[in-house]
Design a protein around this nucleic acid. Sequence first.
DNA 1: AAGGACACGGACTACATCAT
DNA 2: ATGATGTAGTCCGTGTCCTT
Length: 681
Amino acid sequence: MVRTAERTEKHSGYILRAYSNLHIQQSANIRPLNAQVCAWSYQNRSEVATSLAVMTEPNIARSLAPAPPGFQRRPSAEPQRQRKNISTACTACKARKWKCTGSAPCNNCVRSNTECIIDELSDNRRRLGLKRKLEELTEDKKLLVQLVETLRYSSNEHVMRLLDLIRNKSASLDEIKDYFDGKVTDSEFDTTPELQEVHDRLEARASRRSSRRLLDVTWLSNIPVVEVPAHPWTTVTDDDGLVSFLISLWLTWNHPFCNWIDRDLFIRDMRSKNTNCTFCSPFLVNSILTKASFYCDYPEVLDDVNDPESKGMHFYREAKELFERQDGRITIPTIQGYATLLTSTALIGKDRLVWLSLGQLGRMVADISSSHLPMQLNSDENKRVEGRAIDNTIWGVYNLTAMFSTIFMKPLDLKKPLRPRLPSDHDDEDVSVVAWNPYPRHGDDQPSHLACVFNSLSKLNELNVEATRRLLKDESRKAMSRPDIEIVVSSIFPRLQAWTISSPAYSSFAETCVESALQIAQMIRLYRSKWSIEFISGTAVYWVSIALFVLLDDLENPSNRRAFIDLCSVAMALSKQWFLAKGILRMLQITAKQMRVSLPPETEPFLQDFDSDMWRQERGRRRLSSAFPNFSLLFQRVTGAGGGLNDPIDLDKYLEKLDNFSKLEDLSRLEIAHSPPVTPS
DNA sequence: AAGGACACGGACTACATCAT
DNA sequence: ATGATGTAGTCCGTGTCCTT
């Protein structure tokens, strides 16, 4: 800088003198430089310059115009006179490419009566200018990240507001920043019909979103809930970051509902990297990573990068191999991993295998129960914690088995575990409350209520086991008279109402079913508005499907219709993640056709896509081995309400029989005896 | 037709950084 | 401290359009 300043100083004296003379010439004209003056200057200024040079400095011989192409300066004994640029021109002169005097207001701005702004910080040659530019770019990048995250993870209502701001209110970037900073109040929004339409389309398309993440901001700014090592737990990947990401996803979105694995002990042992520990094993880790892969869109979780259905299958394969190598040795992680693996197996459409494996799982639990007696209250803290984890695993397997029994409508003679439930984490100060937030989105921590959820689920499953056993005599799902059903329902339903707080009493069995389906739709709406369907637990496949079949019976009712549409779009989203959901959706489509139920037109666009793109191209039923029942047919059969007696009820067999027709319209020509839809009495 | 206003290609200069 | 170098800014000189 010093050097430059000196150099500039060295030249400034004679140059300024020369230019002040030129300005006498220019100021005689209205504009400093115009074609005519310039033309004159071009001819004469060299003479002026020369004479100036003679008069002032002997070495100034200035070329006033840019050299023509190919021009080469002749080597001369006389040094060329240098043009002097001012350091920073004002914004107006910059734009016009005029000579600026460099101090506000400059001559040109005075003459043209414009505002003269000289902003030295906008000069990107200077450190300060670069610093400011860097700050601006950093701010812009932050805004971009916020924008993408909002579009990706926020509720559609939130996205709609943002769209409103950008589209209808033409908000500037600063105003969008204000919105993110919470400086725009709710009252400043009023939704236009046009925007409502956009919102509706967004809702419909949410389920058809591409599974590829082309621009992943999350990963770059990602801090996992837990950091755990890949080695020595899996050979599929050595990427600790990916494994931490997957385990964090699983802990956030799946574990709260499958809480048969003690979170703290599992993480503690996984971090120890010791494969001889008590609460972690390579088999368990691979089972969890299989399940977690379904919540992730990175190519690393695909076994075959060209096959989106191969999510987590490399972890699945390794888990199965590890299980086979265990040679019947039963440990706590073996049971936990096996239960976890079965949930994935079911959701990829192989629940017949799961059904057969439940017996094996039960025997494992019996084995471990006999070797691990219920924990003693006088044990030391470590023993108590470990004992509680074992009790929890036993309850978890009970819950899982009860859930499958209920979903597949096949009764099992399940004994309630004689083990204590988890201590409540509401009031007990001794129990540390585990925080939960919607990872990978950032949100405020809130209590997870892990024990509370788990205990409630256990109580619910006790009711489920009893209901299934009393309603269905055996696995064949034999017919039962309508009055008998009503008696069982009236006995169990009040206890179910006591289990929930909000369920009002319903007068009939059918009304109970429909109201429950509407509540499921309501819960789904709540979930979607708070988080995102892509993170919902896989078990949602079951209860969303059951609700859809229930509502199929009475779509004339507007609230049923609305709930059906919502659930249908959710089923589409789930079918991208879980193969079983694809099969169930197909079954629903064919059943509706069989029952001659016309589906709401709002569901047509995505059901048509599903029919042509997702189902027919894959011929998916060949990959299914599922006993998930067709609830419409099952209901008709167990109540003796007529029709559909000749059709198989299990998903795989149903599709095998009825999915062979290239067009669903063909179904109407089939000679299958079907009664009109069963209407609630 | 004359002259003013404006746009802009590209020669030239300012600035920061690096090597010596 | 000085010179070489790369990048970004300045503005000369010319062409075109519009107004008087």
